[in-house]
Design a binder for these strands. Structure first.
Length: 194
DNA sequence: ACGATGATGAAC
DNA sequence: TTCATCATCGTA
């Protein structure tokens, strides 16, 4: 069996393994937030996979960022943010809603991307409710065996369809609240109506 | 515009 | 132990 034949078998398999690897997340959080648009959030519930395209994200960047939970140092809740990239950071807020974040950057540097919208669900609380995601995922790795991960399915997003806006619900953060670290995928229809 | 609803973290 | 705060959402 020749090497050429082997690689013809192996290469397509390698291209099919589209689960985002740690290196995707081990970059600056703003870059990762933007690049997550068009990627697919996949959730497996009792053997059944639900895959939805990510349409809205927000970056939270380190302890200097006053809107970031790490701004007041490490606590039991935000500990996953200080861990390695590609882990989930899930927290409960307003007495009702679970927020799904994925950790980015080097280990020890607290940063994460909030996934605000995917598929038909616009809003971070609606998304976690629909996909049955709660604090049990906080600190887990975004890989298949966690039943919650992110895939590249070959959708290319043009920069002209990405809208950068201020983050939502962080008015207390002063000038940090005005940073354009919220990324929204504009649908072609909303583009026409704009 | 507002109330629901409860974990979290800091102060005491 | 108390208390203010909160990366939201549905209803009005």
């Amino acid at each position: 069996m020749g090497a050429a034949f082997l690689s013809s078998l192996i290469m397509p398999v390698a291209e099919m393994s589209r689960v985002l690897s740690p290196s995707f997340f081990r970059r600056s959080v703003v870059t990762v937030a933007r690049d997550l648009l068009g990627k697919f959030l996949v959730r497996r519930i009792s053997g059944r996979e639900i895959a939805v395209m990510i349409t809205e994200t927000e970056a939270y960047d380190g302890s200097q960022d006053r809107a970031c939970h790490a701004h007041r140092g490490r606590t039991p809740r935000n500990a996953p943010m200080f861990g390695p990239a590609r882990c989930w950071y899930v927290y409960f807020v307003y007495g009702m809603h679970w927020m799904l974040n994925v950790v980015t950057g080097e280990s020890g540097y607290p940063a994460a991307v909030l996934i605000r919208g995917a598929g038909e669900w616009e809003g971070p609380g609606k998304l976690t409710k629909a996909l049955q995601i709660d604090g049990a995922w906080s600190g887990k790795v975004a890989e298949e065996k966690s039943d919650l991960w992110i895939e590249d399915r070959g959708v290319a997003i043009s920069p002209r369809h990405v809208q950068a806006l201020p983050r939502v619900g962080v008015d207390y953060a002063g000038s940090w609240a005005r940073k354009p670290w919220r990324f929204v995928l504009r649908s072609s229809s909303s583009f026409l109506h704009s």
